[in-house]
């Protein structure tokens, strides 16, 4: 029983990381209809930068915050290239973000090399209800939950949050009332960058990061986000947590290293079920 509780809490901690990546994807997709393939790179950049800053002797907190803000800036830059040119379709933007994700490899290797990196998080082992787990997982949860609450408040209570939702709901009407839809798209990219970066700095102490870790993060994030059709942040949170718990339980009870496969098969199943329920509704091709 205490095994189960331990797996559950660990899984929630891992899932929180996925949920953050997923909510970044959702934030960007809702407003711009672009699926951002560079989403995993934000996490890698933030984590790598944080590890450098910590190694240089800067204090915890400051280093992580700098990492997250840099990821937000990276998000803004990706957005500028991906949607900055008028008339760029979401399909084209997707290909651009794919290219920028690979470009990030080049930058990351030049700055940080191609070896795995990590840094210390909350040290030690926590005991919750008889279950033992790395204490850092509790920190991940302790940060992620308030972040999601703050995001919910941002979208529900602030005018800028409502304007973002308005762009998602009806971009033409947003133009009519004078909302700069492109600028809102860039804001969404920056927000997505920050959320991806937060996922990176939170999970790196328990899962070291390499320049090409972005594929795993992206796939897990997408699998979590697709449950809510890439438009519902709350479902993305649930999806991320569920995925994390499922993977940890499967690994814990003997499935050893089939973690990514769980996400992949789940993602395929969800998409195929969604597609057959929709009937093949054609999306605009590129």
């Amino acid at each position: 029983m205490s095994d189960f509780l331990g797996y559950l809490l660990t899984g929630l901690g891992i899932g929180a990381g996925y949920a953050l990546v997923a909510s970044g994807l959702v934030a960007i997709h809702r407003v711009t209809r672009v699926v951002n393939f560079a989403q995993g790179a934000f996490a890698v950049v933030a984590a790598m930068l944080t590890s450098s800053l910590l190694a240089a002797g800067l204090p915890h907190g400051f280093a992580e915050l700098t990492g997250v803000l840099t990821a937000a800036l990276a998000g803004l830059l990706v957005g500028l290239v991906a949607i900055g040119r008028p008339g760029t379709t979401p399909g084209t933007s997707l290909i651009i973000t794919l290219g920028l994700g690979i470009f990030a490899y080049a930058i990351e290797i030049v700055i940080w090399g191609d070896q795995p990196r990590s840094f210390a998080g909350v040290p030690g082992v926590a005991v919750v209800g008889g279950a033992r787990l790395q204490a850092h997982y509790l920190l991940i949860l302790a940060v992620t939950v308030p972040v999601f609450l703050a995001m919910a408040a941002f979208f529900a209570r602030t005018d800028v949050g409502k304007a973002l939702s308005a762009c998602a709901s009806n971009p033409y009407a947003a133009l009519v009332v004078g909302i700069d839809v492109r600028r809102m798209g860039l804001l969404a990219f920056a927000l997505g960058g920050a959320l991806g970066g937060l996922a990176g700095v939170l999970t790196t102490p328990v899962q070291q990061v390499t320049f090409d870790s972005d594929v795993t993060l992206l796939v897990n994030g997408f699998a979590a986000a697709i449950l809510g059709g890439l438009t519902r942040p709350v479902v993305a949170l649930g999806g991320g947590l569920l995925l994390g718990v499922a993977q940890t339980l499967i690994a814990g009870y003997g499935g050893s290293a089939y973690q990514l496969e769980v996400a992949l098969v789940l993602m395929l199943a969800v998409m195929i079920v969604q597609a057959s329920r929709r009937g093949a509704v054609p999306e605009p091709a590129r």
Binding site: K162, S165, S169, A173
Partner: peptide
């Protein structure tokens, strides 16, 4: 051209953007 997912009050508020 409503903001269909938003409340009536939010639609109005955004009119004053």
């Amino acid at each position: 051209e409503m903001f269909g997912d938003l409340s009536v009050d939010d639609n109005l508020r955004l009119g004053g953007w």
